[in-house]
C-alpha cells in the first residue's frame, strides 16, 4: 500500500496571533511552526500501516523553503520520502489542486490529510481533493482499518460516531482518535540522523486558480474584566445570567 500524508505547517498552538502590513499578513515573528496536530495523528497512523502492513509512506506539503524543517520532522518520525510543492499555500482550493496533481502522478492508494489546519481553519483540502480526483472520502476520521482493498472507517458525527465501509483509493480528513495522544512519537536521534539522508523532492506548482483571497485580518475586541460572584451566593450568578446576560 502506498500512503501519502498531507502535512500542513502551522503555528504552534501556544502562538500569539498578530498581523502586519496593515493587517494583511500573519506576523510570523517569534512563531514556532509545527506539523498540524490533525496531520500528526494521521502520520502516526500511517507509521502503524508501515510497520504492521508494510506500507510505504510519503509526506507532501505545499509551501516555501521554510517548511522544510517541519518536513524533516515528519521524515524523522518515519516517513520514507518527502515532497514539497514550492508555492505559498494561499487558499485551500489552490493547495488541493497542487496535492491532487502529486496524488495523480504518484499512484497512492491511501491519502491521509487532516480534518482542518489549525491556522486558517479551512477544513476543505481533503474534500476538494476527493471531488477533483473522484475518489472515496471520509472526513473527521477517528478510526481506520484496511484489509486489501477493503476499508473500515469510523467518523465522528455530532453526538456520536458512524462506522463506514468503503474501498481504496481513499482520502481521509483525520483527527485525534485515529491514534491516541500517547501514541504520538517524538523523533529520536536515530530518526533525525536518518531523516537527513531521505529524499525531499521539490516540485514546481501547476497552474490553477486561487479561489479565495484573504484580504485582511483582525483580532477579537478586547474583553472587559470578569464579574466575580461570591461562592456562597450562587443565586447572584443565576440572576446575572438571567437578567443581565439573558442566556438562561
Amino acid at each position: 500500500m502506498n500512503i501519502l500524508v498531507c502535512i500542513s505547517n502551522v503555528p504552534d498552538t501556544t502562538s500569539k496571533i498578530n498581523f502586519t502590513q496593515d493587517n494583511t499578513k500573519f506576523d510570523t515573528t517569534g512563531v514556532q511552526f509545527v506539523i498540524n496536530p490533525n496531520d500528526e495523528f494521521g502520520l502516526t497512523r500511517a507509521m502503524w500501516f508501515k510497520e504492521k502492513q508494510g506500507a510505504t509512506v510519503h509526506v507532501a506539503t505545499v509551501g516555501g523553503p521554510s517548511v522544510e524543517s517541519t518536513m524533516r520532522k515528519a521524515l524523522a518520525i518515519g516517513a520514507d520520502e518527502g515532497i514539497r510543492i514550492n508555492a505559498e499555500p494561499t487558499d485551500g482550493y489552490f493547495v488541493a489542486q497542487q496535492l491532487a496533481e502529486v496524488i495523480k502522478n504518484g499512484g497512492y492508494d491511501l491519502i491521509i490529510a487532516g480534518r482542518e489546519s489549525i491556522d486558517y481553519n479551512g477544513g476543505m483540502v481533503p474534500g476538494i481533493i476527493a471531488a477533483t480526483l473522484d475518489i472515496n472520502f471520509v472526513n473527521t476520521c477517528i478510526g481506520l482499518e484496511i484489509e486489501g482493498e477493503k476499508v473500515k472507517a469510523i467518523r465522528e458525527i455530532d453526538g456520536g460516531k458512524e462506522t463506514l465501509e468503503t474501498s481504496l483509493p481513499l482520502i481521509i480528513g483525520g483527527q485525534k482518535g485515529l491514534v491516541e495522544e500517547s501514541d504520538l512519537r517524538i523523533p529520536n536521534m536515530r530518526g533525525i540522523m536518518m531523516a537527513r539522508q531521505k529524499k525531499l523532492n521539490v516540485l514546481e506548482p501547476v497552474d490553477t486558480v486561487h479561489a479565495t483571497t484573504d484580504k485582511s485580518f483582525d483580532k477579537p475586541a478586547p474583553k472587559g474584566p470578569v464579574k466575580l460572584v461570591d461562592a456562597d451566593n450562587v443565586e447572584e450568578l443565576i440572576d446575572l445570567l438571567h437578567n443581565e446576560a439573558k442566556v438562561i
Binding site: 476527493a130 472526513n139 473527521t140 480528513g173 479565495t212
Partner: peptide, 23 residues
C-alpha cells in the same frame, strides 16, 4: 457549520470548482 455540512463543504467546492468560505 455542523460536522455534516463541513463534510459537504470541501466536496462541493471541488465538484463546483468554487471558492468556499467556512466559519
Amino acid at each position: 457549520s455542523s460536522t455534516d455540512s463541513k463534510y459537504l463543504g470541501g466536496l462541493l467546492a471541488g465538484m463546483l470548482k468554487a471558492g468556499y468560505v467556512p466559519n
